[in-house]
Design a protein around this nucleic acid. Structure first.
Lengths: 159, 159
DNA sequence: TGCATTTGGTTGCATATGTAACTATTTTGA
DNA sequence: TCAAAATAGTTACATATGCAACCAAATGCA
């Protein structure tokens, strides 16, 4: 009797479309793309470029290593984004007097101008997005993101 | 006074770590990687390989196009995953009698065996993950994912 | 001191990915 | 019925990405 279905019968049926990690991934990618569209074409920036600019706009003078910590990018990606941004004239690297290996990163005036144009759009997008949720659901989302982040953090492995 | 800070003063300060899209992206990547670790090394499968196997395990005989619809992968990615899985012996393509262009995809016995081993682990991971949330928060998460997905769906653009 | 180890950052290379162009079939509609 | 348009799927090419090896400066410690 229908040998070919044995496998799917004795495991829980996975509806990909109901599977949390899958939904999260699709949602996250959709949102990332929508945001990227806010600066990609007009300012010729990639997601990584913008991420680096965003942290430097807030914290001028970080080193590349510090940027990696704050952006969850790996150091190669940061290194490449930084040199691309330097080439474009959005940031400059200044030697650190204390550590001859490190380079402190600063947005140039041009970089700040771009930052000043992109940031409000990005923030507005987030606001718009959150406005589709009730106040209660916003708070719940806050909790859930925290809980899931904690559950998946390397310090406390899940299994 | 302090010209250089003008920009960051008159835009809302973006703390990347508090920015919803960023948190979502980091969380989603962390979870995806954790799940990938459940099959990547032991079964030599990529995320896309597994995604294709997952839908075919549930719905044998889909065409590549139908797989793209159900996985939110693009057709090139599906095509590549399918040929890799065929080479590995996990699936086979059969001609469709109605449409000479289409190929119906089926897991082989080996593919079904692998599916049967991986699926329970993946489901267990999700269960474990959700167990870190209260019942109320699980329901809220459900609502929020739905609402955000709706808010970002191409049919109803956000702005 | 001075040599081994660590750390900040870059580079090279192999692989992955996205876009557009392409083949082959099917559908449409004049 | 037949040429034009659409569709399933693959291939080619250019770019992005990840990992390991690398250089140079800094640190640890015998």
């Amino acid at each position: 009797m229908n040998e070919t279905q044995t496998v799917s019968v004795d495991t829980a049926p996975l509806q990909l479309s109901h599977f949390l990690p899958y939904r999260l991934s699709v949602l996250s990618n959709t949102i990332s793309q929508a945001i990227a569209a806010l600066y990609e074409a007009e300012f010729d920036l990639s997601v990584w470029h913008w991420r680096v600019m965003a942290v430097l706009g807030e914290r001028p003078g970080l080193t590349a290593r510090e940027v990696t910590e704050r952006t969850a990018m790996d150091k190669v990606a940061v290194s490449r984004a930084v040199s691309a941004l330097e080439t474009k004239g959005h940031l400059e690297r200044c030697e650190d007097d204390r550590d001859g290996r490190a380079l402190r990163l600063f947005l140039t005036d041009q970089g700040k101008r771009t930052y000043g144009q992109v940031m409000p759009r990005v923030m507005a997008y987030e606001t718009e997005l959150l406005s589709s949720l009730s106040e209660r659901d916003r708070r719940a989302l806050e909790r859930v993101l925290g809980a899931l982040a904690a559950a998946t953090s390397p310090e406390k492995p899940l299994w």
